[in-house]
Design a protein around this nucleic acid. Structure first.
Lengths: 172, 172
DNA sequence: ATTTTTGCAAATCATTTGCATATAT
DNA sequence: ATATATGCAAATGATTTGCAAAAAT
């Protein structure tokens, strides 16, 4: 067990075993992606852990450039190329998903590896996942109307999240 | 009347007035975008007409690079920058819409300036527009579930169009 | 005549790639 | 030990921009 946690980078070798609190925090943070990597048989490298960590510390959507900046500011050194490669891999493994903002920017959001859609706050950028919600029926209907054999779809919703609504109501 | 048609580029000054057939063909081709431009008060320049024409001659989605290539092949000379600027403007005026392909490429499709969605053939790239189709209800439901005040949404469907299905059934 | 638009070439920005080195298994 | 992953710097590709010349109103 201690070995496994160490492999995932949740505890470090020196201190023997970290406190329960530390483990739990670490697990809820960066580990989701790391676990996916491990299960898929990819090597658990320091740069990948760093990128997973940067993503975990983010709120809402982010671009590759955001991560590059984050890394530079925290003096964590991972090459730009590595960040792009990590994002590509995480996307491949569905640990992260690419979303296209109305601005045309390519952004990413961390997410669960099951089919779903994102609701994106146009004010703070925070995202929430929502399940299928009746989309299958719509897709079917559209297929019927157009004659297309629908294979997949992409739905992105934009709006103001509850927090921003509350904040807006309070002050400006 | 002849003046108006000339302004829109549907008839040329020299021949007095083109044949009805010519007018009709021209109108169904490039004029939709040109008309939108005119109504919005933008100048009707040759390069913009050329770009509108290139778009009209396209089937399905296209990228800025596609138009640059088309122009070069037909020896119509419009600068690359002009094509980008025209696309930006047409998008602004909703004569064209930007769609993000699953590949991540930025593509455009010509379309009606009303809210709708696109069904995109993953084989030939052809697109079809579909109306709201029950989306408002879904958006409302998602808003209720997540607490977001939904402002807009983007739905893109991918599949095989009727033509490609038929072609596939015939040969390979 | 005046304002808008164009074309060019250079600048910028995002992303990818080759390859020698470093690291995880 | 060996396959994989990294970092760098250079290559690529897409898009934008400054500015003088050209075209539309």
């Amino acid at each position: 067990m201690a070995d496994y946690l160490m492999r995932l980078g949740l505890v470090n070798g020196k201190s023997g075993i970290a406190s329960i609190r530390g483990i739990v925090e670490a697990m809820t943070e960066a580990s989701a992606i790391v676990t996916v990597l491990d299960r898929a048989g990819y090597r658990l490298t320091e740069p990948r852990r760093v990128v997973a960590g940067l993503i975990a510390d983010r709120t809402g959507h982010f671009t590759a450039a955001d991560l590059v900046d984050d890394a530079r500011q925290r003096r964590l050194d991972v090459g730009r190329a590595t960040i792009f490669r990590a994002l590509e891999l995480f996307t491949e493994l569905n640990a992260v998903e690419r979303v296209d903002l109305p601005s045309g920017d390519h952004a990413y959001v961390e997410c669960e590896p099951v089919h779903h859609h994102h609701v994106i706050c146009s004010q703070c950028g925070r995202t929430t996942e929502v399940g299928a919600c009746g989309m299958p029926a719509i897709a079917r209907e559209i297929g019927r109307r157009t004659g297309f054999r629908i294979q997949s779809h992409r739905l992105e919703l934009f709006g103001i999240c509850p927090d921003c609504q509350a904040a807006n109501a309070r002050h400006g």
